[in-house]
Design a protein around this nucleic acid. Structure first.
Lengths: 136, 136
DNA sequence: GTAGATGCAAAGTATTTGCGACAAG
DNA sequence: CTTGTCGCAAATACTTTGCATCTAC
């Protein structure tokens, strides 16, 4: 089983305050990719006293220690997602905004090859596909 | 030979003001990927009276009519680049910020295949590789 | 001549930060 | 205890917009 965000914090030596516990819980349970406003709303419904500054500070911290990852999809606000063992990329439905996660090992392999070709070690990558549903 | 941005404006029925001509010229000659501030600086050195609002309005317009494309690389400001016949993706040097353009048809093909697999027609995509130079 | 473009300053968003009060380890 | 965190409000960064004036076609 996967560690919860709280457990990851402990492992990484991140101090666990009540606020962080709540944000951790909300992000652990989120199966979408909430932006800060949305996350703030969810968190506020558990503890209305949490400030948005804390939410910003916490997602930034969690990102720095490798618990969350930030996405900046075309023309929308920054969204966050928990990092789990399986890396994946995103296919975004341009009509509905729906986000589909996918993995393609062959593309990953080719990316490394490209970086290699230019004398680089691939550290990270971003692949986003934007599409519209085919009328079957 | 490739049309200049000015020529593209005419073809697309975009009214050519002096300001737009200058912005068009600067972007045509830019071989990097300037952000709005940088573009504003270059444009200002030709005509210091141009306002930054006009620069914002113009890049937005040029983007809408398909003359420029906007990139939002990790943690940096929006950057613009002229669209030319050859589509390409970007490899970003995490140390120096240098941007290398590349094309990989095999990756492109696989992207279409992925979209297809989920029942989508691929409209657009974003692929960015982030790497560090290998010590040869 | 007229619709649309510009410059300016003010208003919007999204995000960060200084500071005094407070809490985790 | 002490260091780091929190809430608040102010500050910052980037981008858009209302309005009066001006200009390309």
């Amino acid at each position: 089983m996967q560690d919860s965000i709280e457990q990851k914090c402990i492992k990484k030596g991140v101090k666990l305050t009540d606020q962080r516990k709540i944000i951790a819980k909300v992000m652990s349970e989120a199966h979408d990719h909430p932006d800060v406003d949305e996350l703030y709303k969810r968190v506020s419904s558990i503890d209305p006293k949490i400030s948005i500054a804390t939410v910003y500070r916490t997602v930034k911290l969690f990102e720095e220690v490798g618990i969350l990852t930030k996405h900046e999809f075309k023309g929308s606000k920054a969204r966050y997602e928990e990092i789990n063992e399986g890396h994946h990329d995103h296919l975004i439905d341009l009509k509905s905004g729906e986000i589909i996660e996918f993995v393609d090992y062959e593309i990953e392999k080719l990316q490394k090859k490209v970086a290699d070709k230019y004398g680089y070690t691939l550290v990270d990558h971003k692949l986003e596909l934007y599409g519209v549903k085919k009328k079957s």
